[in-house]
Computed example of a mutant assay.
Amino acid sequence: MPLHLPRLGTALWRLFVDAVRVYITLLKVMVPALLVVKALDVMGATRWIGLAIAPLMELVGLPAEMGMVWAATLLTNIFTGLVVFFEVAGDASLSVAQVNVLGALLLIGHSLPVEGAVAKRAGVPWWATIALRVGGALVFGALLHGGYQVLGLWWPEFGQQPVELAWRPEPAVDGVGHWLLGQLSTLGLIFLIILALMALLEALRALRLERLVHLALAPLLGMLGIGRGAANVTVIGVTLGLSYGAGLLIRDLDAGVMSRRDAVLALCFLGLCHSVIEDTLLILLMGAELWAVLGARIAFAIVVMALIARWPVVTPSSAGGVKHRS
């Protein structure tokens, strides 16, 4: 088949323009959120949040000082939480079981200002994001903690060995200038990833492989109550991150390709289980175990979303948001 360069050039240009539109949509949400987070951090919000949630740490079997680790992660991201963790981990002798529980909290509850703002743009209100991410993290952590306690009745040594810290991140450089350069670098990388993802999706469509992806995911999506139209963004969000999946989800939602209900359910699922590659690797550096922070996390997300799909707590409203169903 001859290669038509004019058609190829037009297709590439349309792909680039579409990627720019998705990127600008994300920037409108992410940049204000990043500025708010920086302002809160300067005012000491991390310390306030850490003190507020310190009593909750006892409920999941963690020392109170781990509240500061989770607070930093909730406000910023997992990497920042790791920096705080390695600063305090030397003074707190943690077991493997405790690190697994802490890792569960960080994996589900992180980057709330930015990822919550992105979810809000797609129709998930703040109260739902906070309830799902913070509440879900605490429930998952409590289940892991309870599981270790039960198994400890028959196998007292299970998970009680002290964790070995094999790596420590470099402390972040202070200063607004360094912070600004870091954010610009991250935002630039996000555009490149979005462009690559959209090119991959177009290639799958051209090769007629997209249908195979939908067929493979149909049983799982059906269990979660998510339509096939959200299959691509769900896969992207689960593997790479909520912001990337949500960016494409917003595009499809605005174009009418995806229903509001599918968008809300997909984002709720991604709130519990996203970026399973990068985030999981970061948590493993703490000494956590793969079965707890990946296998158990995926199973927890599927069970929670299957329950929500069958006995829905929220449904899309005609206004484009969600409403409470009594």
Score class of each variant (00 low, 15 high):
Ala11Thr: 06
Trp13Ser: 03
Trp13Phe: 08
Leu15Ser: 12
Phe16His: 04
Asp18Arg: 06
Ala19Ile: 00
Tyr23Asp: 11
Tyr23His: 09
Tyr23Met: 04
Thr25Cys: 00
Val29Ile: 09
Ala45Asn: 05
Arg47Pro: 02
Arg47Ile: 12
Ile49Trp: 09
Leu51Asn: 13
Glu58Ser: 14
Val60Leu: 05
Leu62Arg: 15
Gly67Trp: 15
Met68Trp: 04
Val69Ala: 10
Ala71Asn: 13
Ala71Tyr: 07
Ala72Phe: 14
Gly81Pro: 15
Val83Arg: 06
Phe85Thr: 06
Phe86Ser: 14
Ala89Lys: 00
Asp91Gln: 14
Leu102Ile: 04
Val114Ser: 04
Ala117Ile: 09
Val118Trp: 08
Ala122Lys: 04
Thr129Leu: 02
Ile130Cys: 03
Leu138Ala: 05
Phe140Glu: 01
Gly141Met: 00
Leu144Cys: 08
His145Gln: 09
Gly146Tyr: 03
Tyr148Lys: 02
Gln149Ser: 08
Trp155Gly: 00
Pro156His: 05
Phe158Ser: 03
Ala166Ile: 14
Trp167Gln: 07
Arg168Cys: 03
Asp174Gln: 14
His178Ile: 03
Leu181Tyr: 12
Leu181Phe: 13
Ser185Thr: 08
Thr186Ile: 14
Phe191Ser: 01
Leu192Met: 11
Ile193Thr: 14
Leu200Pro: 01
Ala203Gly: 12
Leu207Tyr: 08
Arg208Pro: 11
Leu209Val: 12
Glu210His: 13
Glu210Leu: 08
Val213Cys: 10
Val213Met: 09
Leu215Ala: 11
Gly222Lys: 08
Gly227Ser: 05
Ala231Ile: 04
Leu240Ile: 15
Gly241His: 06
Tyr244Met: 10
Ala246Val: 15
Leu248Ala: 00
Asp252Pro: 04
Asp252Gln: 15
Leu253Pro: 07
Asp254Arg: 15
Arg260Cys: 02
Arg260Phe: 01
Leu267Thr: 14
Leu267Phe: 01
Phe269Gln: 00
Gly271Cys: 05
Ser275Leu: 10
Glu278Ile: 02
Asp279Pro: 01
Leu284Pro: 03
Leu284Ser: 01
Ala288Ser: 13
Ala292Glu: 13
Gly295Asn: 05
Gly295Arg: 05
Ala296Cys: 14
Arg297Gln: 10
Phe300Met: 12
Ile302Phe: 11
Val303Cys: 07
Thr315Trp: 03
Thr315Pro: 02
Thr315Tyr: 04
Arg325Glu: 12
Ser326Lys: 13
